[in-house]
Nucleic acid binder design. Sequence first.
DNA 1: TCCCTACTCCTAGTCATACGAGGTATCAAC
DNA 2: GTTGATACCTCGTATGACTAGGAGTAGGGA
Lengths: 106, 106
Amino acid sequence: MKRETLKGHLDLLLLAVVGAGAAHGYHIARRLAEASGGTLDLPEGTLYPALHRLESKNLLSSSWDTVGGRRRRVYDLTPEGKDALARERLEWGSFAQAVESVLDTV
Amino acid sequence: MKRETLKGHLDLLLLAVVGAGAAHGYHIARRLAEASGGTLDLPEGTLYPALHRLESKNLLSSSWDTVGGRRRRVYDLTPEGKDALARERLEWGSFAQAVESVLDTV
DNA sequence: TCCCTACTCCTAGTCATACGAGGTATCAAC
DNA sequence: GTTGATACCTCGTATGACTAGGAGTAGGGA
């Protein structure tokens, strides 16, 4: 996939995954890869800064957890995050439809 | 629309519009706005640099035209542009489907 | 014992590119 | 003579995905 393809759509994906249930970073990445049939395989340098950004925007909240000696940061949606997810879904819908229309029409 | 939404997908749209018939910049923008029901309304600071970029990558070719005293630069697809368009269509398809899968699955 | 794989997190710097703001010029219509 | 549509351009900025590095835990195989 091209370098810029994901830009502007990553937040939607992360919010959607976390919206389906609290999860830690590594787990989010695997859920995403799985749900997309391997197409969406995020490098860590993409994943973690994005999660931090969403937390600093108050769309996600996090807490540390330790399982089997390993530390994890578990993320969950805030109420604002839920709203943002709904908005982003709508935006994606209209964008995707606009692109499809162009591809069909022209 | 968010500032970054279009990133990585603009080339596809421009190639698709020109692929349907040679056109000059202003006309491309209007075809795009029309075909997308107004969703895709490119500012000129987006449109023209993108067209120049595509030409410098040899995906578009251009020639000057004068109609009613006004100069226009008319763009057409090169053979490489046709190939790129086909590739970009496929990429869009798999990306869009991956996103939809994530939104549906999770 | 050592190593490799899987797990789990982090950050500094780079690069590509959409966009805002500003500029130029023609023509028709009011 | 001013406005609005047509038609093009470029410079600078901001954003954000990614590369490349680093850190540590745990388990299994050689």
